[in-house]
């Protein structure tokens, strides 16, 4: 899991944000598009260098899968629930729900971000029931 190429120039402000307890995304001042994951241009209009913004960290579960056969790096952790979360600001991200039974999570549930150390020791956004 550990990757010494990270963070990279696109992601450094994102991971710095996570370390500061902030879920950061980007926003295009030209066309108002919300951009996640962070990129160096607007995925809609192509304008370079979109603004950085901070999410309130509140969202709704868009999809969920409880993993029973974990990849090698995650052996021993299953079962766990991986989510796609639609944040209220209008972007979607993958994460995992923690502090609840994995089977108790449903699509449409409200969740909020919390930060914990991820598999490589870096503070990483996870979600918990709102």
């Amino acid at each position: 899991m550990s990757d010494d190429t990270l963070p990279d120039p696109d992601s450094e402000p994102y991971w710095d944000g996570a370390a500061a307890g902030e879920l950061r995304y980007r926003h295009c001042a030209s066309c108002e598009t919300v951009i996640f994951y962070p990129r160096s241009l607007c995925t809609h209009c192509g304008a370079p260098n979109p603004d950085w913004a901070v999410s309130k960290g509140q969202g709704t579960v868009y999809a969920v899968s409880v993993v029973h056969r974990a990849p090698p790096a995650f052996k021993g952790q299953s079962p766990y629930a991986v989510l796609l979360v639609d944040l209220d600001e209008g972007f979607r991200m993958m994460s995992r729900i923690i502090d609840v039974e994995p089977d108790s999570v449903s699509i449409g549930d409200r969740v909020r971000v919390i930060f914990q150390d991820g598999p490589d020791g870096r503070p990483t956004p996870y979600f918990t029931p709102a």
């Binding site: 974990a70 991986v82 993958m94 490589d120």
Partner: peptide, 13 residues
């Protein structure tokens, strides 16, 4: 790496 760094921490096979 790259775009995958935003999914990789969560262990989705």
């Amino acid at each position: 790496d790259l775009g995958y760094q935003y999914e990789a921490p969560y262990g989705l096979p």
